[in-house]
């Protein structure tokens, strides 16, 4: 078949497909008849076939480009990822996320240790030798912390609703951002996550040790009791996700490194998103609950409850449906 009759025989079909695609792309579907969309798969497949023929028979650059463009656009519409958001969200937090964490139990415990060990070590050291504290923290930020937790309670009781919202927003931005950074830096063979994790452990340890040393411990511990569970565990999980990402480069197994990344990075990302959600929850508690001037005992009880909740969630979550 010559070029001209080839085009003449298909002209209408192509115009139809192009107008359909244009309508879908701009989202204006009112102009279309009800069943117009049912034609799309057929028209698209025909365009693909025409493209192959036009290319093979050298019908010319212009025609090939036009058909290529049509096929790409059609593919874009037909192979769109599905979107059943609510169901997927429930499935993720109810079942998939705790399972993912349990699948990574080795890394989880390694990361917990890497986080907790420097924390405890620095806290004890800072308590005994306060002068060493300044090796890991600069004086200004320590002063800021001291003001935040001053025992006269000026900060905690003087906070209005607006301040609570503001603090919530601050914690979200700061803490979730830390999670993202811990994760992303893991791509550098896991070293980034490792260093961030240790750094944060040292940081928390230094603050805790310092406050115990100067006698503010009551303030500090009642403040962190409520949200610490979600926040600390989430940080460890973000590090797990980052380390797993790095491990795909270090030990890809029987795959190329690129292949390993493409296949398994989404899994790491899911871990990170779970961790980010936990940190978000922690920020909520930290903003609206932790600074309330309530009796210390109540705060410790709530804190213990929260820790139990986190442990039960990650330990048992999504198990029943596994059978």
């Amino acid at each position: 078949m010559k070029r001209e009759p080839f085009i003449a025989a298909r002209k209408q079909r192509w115009a139809r497909l192009e107008s359909l695609l244009a309508a879908l792309r701009t989202g204006r579907r009112d102009g279309l008849e009800r069943d117009a969309l049912h034609e799309l798969p057929r028209l698209y497949r025909q365009a693909c076939q025409d493209l192959a023929l036009a290319r093979r028979r050298m019908y010319g650059r212009e025609l090939v480009q036009r058909l290529n463009q049509m096929a790409l656009r059609g593919r874009e519409q037909l192979y769109r990822p599905s979107s059943r958001y609510l169901h997927e969200v429930a499935q993720f937090f109810g079942v998939d996320f705790p399972r993912l964490v349990r699948e990574e139990w080795r890394l989880f415990w390694i990361c917990s240790l890497l986080f907790a060990a420097p924390l405890v070590a620095v806290a004890v050291t800072a308590n005994k030798r306060p002068d060493l504290l300044y090796a890991v923290m600069d004086p200004e930020s320590l002063e800021r912390f001291e003001e935040m937790y001053a025992p006269d309670g000026a900060t905690s009781s003087g906070r209005g609703v607006g301040d609570n919202v503001r603090m919530f927003a601050f914690y979200v931005r700061n803490n979730v951002g830390i999670d993202f950074q811990i994760f992303a830096s893991g791509l550098v063979f896991g070293i980034g996550s490792l260093l961030s994790l240790i750094y944060n452990g040292v940081h928390f340890g230094a603050v805790a040790g310092h406050f115990v040393a100067i006698g503010y411990e009551q303030q500090l511990f009642t403040f962190v009791a409520g949200h610490s569970s979600w926040e600390l565990v989430a940080m460890v999980i973000a590090a797990v996700a980052g380390m797993r990402l790095g491990s795909l480069l270090v030990a890809p197994g029987r795959r190329s490194r690129a292949r390993a990344l493409v296949e398994d990075a989404p899994r790491c990302l899911r871990l990170l998103l779970g961790a980010a959600a936990m940190t978000f929850l922690a920020a909520f508690i930290e903003g609206f609950w932790s600074a309330q001037p309530l009796p210390g005992t109540l705060k410790y009880v709530v804190g213990a409850l929260m820790w139990t909740l986190v442990i039960v969630y990650l330990w048992l979550g999504g198990r029943r449906r596994a059978a």
Binding site: E76, G162, D163, N164, V165, R166, A169, V172, R173, G177
Partner: peptide, 29 residues
């Protein structure tokens, strides 16, 4: 707008900081 305004500001900065390209890429072809 005081406290709530600042809160909104911080949250928006967080969203722009991390999700500006994501939101556009997913929702805007």
């Amino acid at each position: 707008f005081g406290g709530p305004g600042e809160a909104l500001l911080l949250l928006s900065v967080f969203v722009v900081e991390w999700f500006y390209p994501v939101l556009f890429e997913v929702l805007w072809a």
